[in-house]
Design a protein around this nucleic acid. Sequence first.
DNA 1: GGGGTCTTTCAGCGAGGTTTCAGCTTCATT
DNA 2: AATGAAGCTGAAACCTCGCTGAAAGACCCC
Lengths: 224, 224
Amino acid sequence: MRLLLAEDDEALVAGLKPALERAGYAVDVATDGVFAQLSAEAIAYDLIVLDLGLPRRNGIEVLRGWRAARRAMPVVVLTARDTWQEKVEVLNAGADDYVCKPFHTEELLARIAAVLKRSAARRAPGPLARGGLRLDEATQSAALDDGTPIELSSIEFRLLRCFMLHAGQVLSQQRLNEHLYDHATDHDSNVIEAHITRLRRKIGRDWIQTRRGQGYVFEAPEAP
Amino acid sequence: MRLLLAEDDEALVAGLKPALERAGYAVDVATDGVFAQLSAEAIAYDLIVLDLGLPRRNGIEVLRGWRAARRAMPVVVLTARDTWQEKVEVLNAGADDYVCKPFHTEELLARIAAVLKRSAARRAPGPLARGGLRLDEATQSAALDDGTPIELSSIEFRLLRCFMLHAGQVLSQQRLNEHLYDHATDHDSNVIEAHITRLRRKIGRDWIQTRRGQGYVFEAPEAP
DNA sequence: GGGGTCTTTCAGCGAGGTTTCAGCTTCATT
DNA sequence: AATGAAGCTGAAACCTCGCTGAAAGACCCC
């Protein structure tokens, strides 16, 4: 789950980025309007957190630019001004939610989760449960339908969620890499393979099939 | 312990907010009905103080909205009109208590405490019976079921209460920070860790489990 | 002001998660 | 079957995070 944080206040970023990452998102940061706009045009983010007071280009213009270009990803707007007029303007420009500074980190997280849930509901109804495997966002753990809990580390959780969100699709190692880490890393390593091994050991071998030379596919195992 | 004060009278807020904070709650304020509704949908407040005479959306509608959305947090209603009809209407809409203006701050505090106690008892027969750990608000101390008393300092008490109210959930350090202190503090310190250590030493190691990189979970220890 | 307690900071330690590495297995192609 | 490429996996290295004892700071009560 990949997210762009468009915010220039360093202190805020320093607090927010780790919190978002703890919540299981891969976070890129853009510190001015132009860069934010370009980034989101280049990459299909799952959600964008957009400060209105960015240097070089106003947040509202950036947002309008995306919507004009038919970019439909959910956008949560941050602003320092809590006026009725601005709220209306922002929502009309195509924002999905609106949070005033100062805010509790937890509140932003909750709103992000709510917006994502809504947008996921639009696309694919139902919570994150596929064929007898459930993911619990709150405790960052998984469970089989019979109730057996499965403890996951942070990376394993993100990996599994990525698979479940794209169940049935082939996910290349490169794509998994990009979803799990910030796109600075040009890994030629086998981290992904290693984690897949550990994940398979925990949830069972059959959920993740390898497509040689292409990637991996997540599917419910055959009933024997 | 997090609380939403939905009230538009500035003078009242100016008096009430500090009083509530002094009583150990973290307080957010919402000054109109729509915002109050959204806030409480986004954040799991432990309690809400709701004025009926809010601008933009009537308090009763807001309350009905929450209950229709299966939001079960306790709500204490403030109102200027003291008629039995309104009282009935409000309680039927799902309020937990009802205070008429003008009131003494102390009275409101007492009702809040009472409502919280009731709701804690409702949700979890648990702080008491569960694993044999009880919290005593009056003496700010804890006790094991066998009667052994445990002396707690103020912060330890609030920390433990926060854990017991959210038993089974993962609480990140950041979230605990925000619940224990006003959200001015951008601590990169390890206060929380230090207090967790001392708390564990007092109540026993097994109650609070660490989820590396995510936070802590409060649970009754296994019976050996 | 002095003794006590509560709270916070600091620094070193240790555990656990993550990544790398090396050797092995599997698969496709000839 | 031989070969090479791709993937698997156990073990070791690395690194980060949380733990904890001690000391400093804040606060309160005499």
